[in-house]
């Protein structure tokens, strides 16, 4: 999922770098409001955990692999603003230290994974959670479905970037079909990892989980 240098022309890459920078700036503001001295360390550790799990490529069908993106997972654990920042830190470390994801493509990758992945994952999570009973297990299930949808959504971001500035001219329909098809399958892995991780944390420290805390806060306000 990490775009290397050369797939997308420099002009389009620069536009998305600008867009990504704006989103990160807004997220810095949002996270400042959202974070407190309990959720701040959790947000840092969430970035670490996602870095680690992104190393674990799992096989999806013959000769292809996928790995966690982590947008929905991070958003459920620490809220969407901090999630965008956590994923951005991960992508910067990967690009600069590990030569994973092109340096000219860093804005493209931040936009797809840290912005689209996080917000589509979180939006889906919120919708699904509303439809489910207010139980702890619903947080993990809604988060898993958010994860499932977030992966093809991030892949769609690449298709748009390819349409705008692909350095090769292959039919957009075939790029679209192949990208979305492959990434729906990878999304199943994303859903499993996201669901299991949220379940494990909900079982031990649900009080730290953003997606569950915000639920309780609402109940308290209604209770008054």
């Amino acid at each position: 999922m990490h775009i290397p240098d050369g797939f997308i022309d420099l002009q389009t890459s620069a536009i998305f770098a600008g867009a990504a920078a704006i989103c990160v700036g807004v997220s810095l503001k949002g996270a400042r409001k959202e974070l407190d001295d309990k959720s701040a360390p959790l947000a840092g550790l969430t970035a670490v955990f996602i870095f680690a799990v992104q190393m674990l490529n799992f096989p999806v069908g013959a000769g292809t692999s996928g790995h966690l993106l982590g947008g929905a997972l991070a958003a459920v654990l620490v809220g969407p603003w901090a999630a965008t920042l956590a994923l951005t830190v991960v992508l910067l470390m990967q690009g600069f230290l590990f030569a994973d994801g092109g340096l000219s493509a860093i804005g493209l990758n931040i936009f797809n994974i840290a912005v689209i992945g996080v917000w589509v994952g979180y939006g889906t999570y919120l919708i699904v959670k509303r439809l489910l009973p207010k139980r702890k297990s619903s947080v993990a299930l809604a988060g898993a479905i958010g994860g499932l949808i977030s992966v093809p959504a991030a892949a769609f971001g690449f298709v748009v970037q390819y349409a705008l500035g692909g350095n090769a001219t292959f039919s957009l329909t075939s790029v679209f079909t192949a990208m979305i098809g492959t990434h729906i399958v990878i999304g199943i892995g994303e859903a499993l990892i996201t669901g299991l991780t949220i379940s494990a944390i909900m079982a031990s420290r649900s009080d730290l989980v953003h997606g569950w805390k915000s639920n309780e806060t609402k109940l308290v306000i209604k209770g008054i």
Binding site: M1, N57, S65, F170
Partner: peptide, 27 residues
């Protein structure tokens, strides 16, 4: 123990034919 197969994007790029447009990473 992670899979070393190409990831989704690399696989698609190879199948469709734009994998060659990738440049070596600066680092």
């Amino acid at each position: 123990y992670a899979s070393s197969s190409p990831d989704g994007l690399e696989k698609v790029a190879g199948e469709i034919g734009f994998l060659d447009s990738a440049k070596d990473h600066a680092n």
